[in-house]
Amino acid sequence: MTVLPPSRTVTGPPPGTRVETLPSVPGLGGLYVRGAAGSAAAQIPGRTTATTLPAVAHRVEGVRVDPGHLTSYQHLLGETGSDALPSGFCHVLAFPVATAVMVRTDFPLPLLGMVHVANAASVLRPVHLGDALDVTAWTQDLRAHRRGTQLDVCAEIAVDGEVAWRGISTYLAKGVHLVGGAESSDAESSVTADASDQESSGEVGASVVWRLSADVGRAYGAVSGDRNPIHMSALSAKAFGFPRAIAHGMYTAARALADVGARRGPTYDWTVEFAKPVLLPGRVDVTYTTGADGAWTYAGRSSSGRPHLAGTVIPNA
């Protein structure tokens, strides 16, 4: 029995959320500057910070996809050149709108240093190039975690007033303890458990190998707009404590989604949990298994067996 991912169980912003409509999709560059400033402000000792998420959703209406942008994304990730938007591309479209929520002054956590630990997204109806897309993003479910504070960043894409895609990104603000209460489960441990299940299944070797070049971070940064310095170069990554640049987690998850390919069908759920970051350049051995229900699970590990990511792709028959 498959447990439904949060992207299927969430149904729109929580009650009482105020929707602020932006005139257009905000530029991520500017958002990062604001986010960095906000992060710095949040670190000023004695500064009082909010302990609740803003009950605000940002919304941009009538977004049109640029065909060149879609093509670049598809080529980079190994998706087919279909006019149907891959779920990962929907995530890319919604990302700036979601980021705009996270750089609000009333957002309680620093943008930089937040770790993307898990993601779930559902294509509920096929979204096509040429559709007018209404993108809505909000944050919810601020909760305590062993190593800090977690929250979900949610986004929906609606076509003709009907939600066609929903994504839930779970972030961890490491070492920030804002709220009490029961700690949520640790994503990393579940990835590890998954991986060991794989080893015992008797499979020999990986099905697929990704050889990631040093410029993969820059390339995905270009199509996603996510130019976080930790992905851009070894130098900029060192400034944040990484020995080399690391691959975008969503890049690796989207590669896995592309590997499953056409058999995910027109509508599907796609989940990922991230473990150790993938240092660039690097190699990831990925195993795919399918169950009788047509659900795919995948797990990517380093050549020494350390887990990088694991997840599912579940067609909605």
Binding site: G78, V204, G205, A206, S207, V208, V209, W210, R211, D259, G261
Partner: peptide
């Protein structure tokens, strides 16, 4: 193209299997 594995690496898996 879809697996990043050379033919030899693929066949090594089959051979072992």
């Amino acid at each position: 193209p879809r697996t990043g594995l050379s033919m030899g690496e693929h066949q090594a898996v089959t051979t072992a299997r």
